[in-house]
């Protein structure tokens, strides 16, 4: 469904992506792992057109993303940003219901609010946060509001950038289960970036490891432990020693 073909991206002399090839099949969950700063966030942003690749092609359902009708294309997507990226001028529920309050998916205000509160409950937040401003929430709560916003309009394709970073282990478990549920029950196609190996094992159908600007290894999550790749091994066991340099 989503295919990245030989995608390159540099920022000045910083060559972040150096020929990324990746395929995500419809209705599956792809998890991208890799050291921080390897370009995982940049890679998923290229799919959404938030970062324009220097070369290479990205297709969704066989259509080149640069040639797709932008509005129709984006209406299929939801995205949780690494930093939450909540609109700080809007109360929490209006953040979650942002899409439902305007544009082609607009719904009556009351209904949008109901949906927002229901989505907040799904990410483990009580209805009383609905009327607060994002700045009044902790980092982990903001992250979950961002997650609720990403799934609010029930998009077909959802990207999660470090959904469990900054959450306590119990809440991380709740979120992992939720993402898994979204894939199996709603049939969504997802790409998740994470460093958390528990997340990987709960969420993933397939795993891809990004290293040095390329996909170092990709395969089903069941093959990950037996991948026989020293880079993957070092990463999943969190060893300081190995081929991946600790100073990057």
């Amino acid at each position: 469904m989503i295919t990245l073909d030989n995608v390159h991206k540099s920022f000045g002399s910083n060559h972040v992506l150096r020929g990324v090839n990746l395929h995500v099949a419809k209705g599956t969950s792809m998890v991208i792992i890799g050291g921080s700063g390897t370009g995982k966030s940049v890679a998923i942003k290229t799919v959404l057109g938030l970062v324009i690749p220097d070369s290479g092609t990205i297709t969704v359902d066989g259509t080149d993303v640069t040639k797709a009708d932008r509005d129709a294309f984006l209406a299929r997507f939801g995205m949780l940003f690494q930093g939450g990226a909540l609109f700080d001028s809007l109360p929490v529920w209006q953040n979650v219901a942002f899409r439902l309050l305007r544009g082609s998916l607009a719904k009556p205000r009351d209904e949008a609010r109901e949906i927002a509160i229901e989505k907040l409950r799904r990410v483990g937040l009580t209805p009383d946060v609905a009327d607060r401003l994002p700045a009044e929430l902790s980092g982990g709560m903001q992250k979950r509001v961002g997650l609720a916003r990403a799934i609010a309009a029930e998009p077909e394709i959802i990207f999660f950038d470090e959904p469990t970073t900054g959450l306590d282990p119990i809440m991380a478990g709740v979120i992992n289960d939720l993402i898994r549920e979204i894939v199996t029950e709603m049939g969504a196609t997802t790409m998740t970036i994470t460093h958390d190996m528990t997340s990987v094992r709960t969420i993933a159908d397939n795993v891809a490891m990004l290293h040095a600007g390329k996909i170092r290894w990709t395969g089903p999550v069941s093959d990950m432990d037996a991948a026989g790749d020293p880079y993957v091994d070092q990463f999943i066991h969190g060893r300081a020693e190995g081929p991946i340099e600790a100073v990057r």
């Binding site: 942003k45 959404l48 057109g49 938030l50 509005d71 984006l74 209406a75 997507f77 939801g78 995205m79 940003f81 690494q82 930093g83 990226a85 909540l86 609109f87 700080d88 942002f98 899409r99 305007r102 544009g103 082609s104 998916l105 916003r149």
Partner: peptide, 16 residues
Amino acid sequence: TMKVTEQIDALVTLST
């Protein structure tokens, strides 16, 4: 500030 905190990117992904 919205740009730096990815709120502009978020707007785009929310079809706005």
